[in-house]
């Protein structure tokens, strides 16, 4: 009979419609903004700069190496290096960015800047409700807006932040161990040098048989 296909189709839609009153799975609409979908951990939208501790200036990890500026495909990052240096998390004095702007009307959240940063200083944020009323200046994020603390990073990307902290701690430990080994080696070299320049004591080699004299020690 002609029309059976259409009737079968209508049966499908009726089943779904009536079923949505009883079966939670058939009711798929989320009433945004009253209900929100939880964002997965890996979700990414626009980068931000991390600082350790409480002071966004002193704890900023970025050393203005400009690698992210170079690798950014749409060239939306603008960095000006500072003239002076400040100590980083390991105590070594490093440059820092005087100006760090990201034009978020150009940024396409490809996270290549995150991949190439050697200092774990720039990571992806998750904020997407960012509408502004003006087109140009309001969509240029400056350093103050972009700097967020490491605790914030732990809140939004817990697994990733834990891995990054572990990497940094390992790197710090390796640097510490190297420094200690270098210090020990330097101390030993200094001690050996001091021993070599001390005049050998005039002693009777025969008075203590068997004991080697300092002069014969090398």
């Amino acid at each position: 009979m002609i029309g059976t296909g259409i009737l079968k189709g209508m049966a499908v839609t009726a089943r779904n419609f009536v079923g949505s009153y009883f079966d939670k799975e058939r009711l798929i609409t989320i009433q945004y903004p009253e209900e929100r979908n939880p964002l997965p951990e890996n979700y990414r939208n626009f980068p931000f700069l991390i600082y350790d501790g409480d002071d966004p200036h002193a704890g900023l990890r970025c050393v203005a190496c400009k690698i992210c500026e170079k690798e950014c495909p749409p060239q939306c990052i603008y960095i000006v290096k500072s003239d002076d240096k400040k100590p980083d998390y390991m105590g070594k004095p490093q440059f820092y960015p005087k100006v760090f702007d990201i034009d978020i009307s150009v940024c396409m959240s490809c996270q290549i800047c995150v991949e190439v940063c050697p200092f774990e200083a720039i990571k992806m944020d998750k904020e997407f409700e960012l509408s502004k009323r003006e087109r140009f200046d309001a969509l240029l994020s400056r350093k103050e807006e972009l700097s967020k603390s490491n605790d914030y990073y732990h809140k939004i990307h817990p697994l990733e932040a834990a891995a990054v902290d572990k990497n940094l701690a390992d790197a710090a430990a390796v640097a510490e161990a190297k420094k200690k080994a270098a210090a020990e080696a330097a101390a030993k070299a200094a001690a050996a040098k001091a021993a070599a320049t001390k005049p050998p004591p005039a002693g009777d080699a025969a008075s203590v048989p068997g004991k080697p004299t300092p002069s014969s020690q090398q």
Partner: peptide, 14 residues
């Protein structure tokens, strides 16, 4: 009106 027509505050030219 630079804040409506273009980005002010860029310290140096690119």
């Amino acid at each position: 009106r630079p804040q409506m027509d273009g980005a002010e505050g860029i310290v140096e030219p690119l």
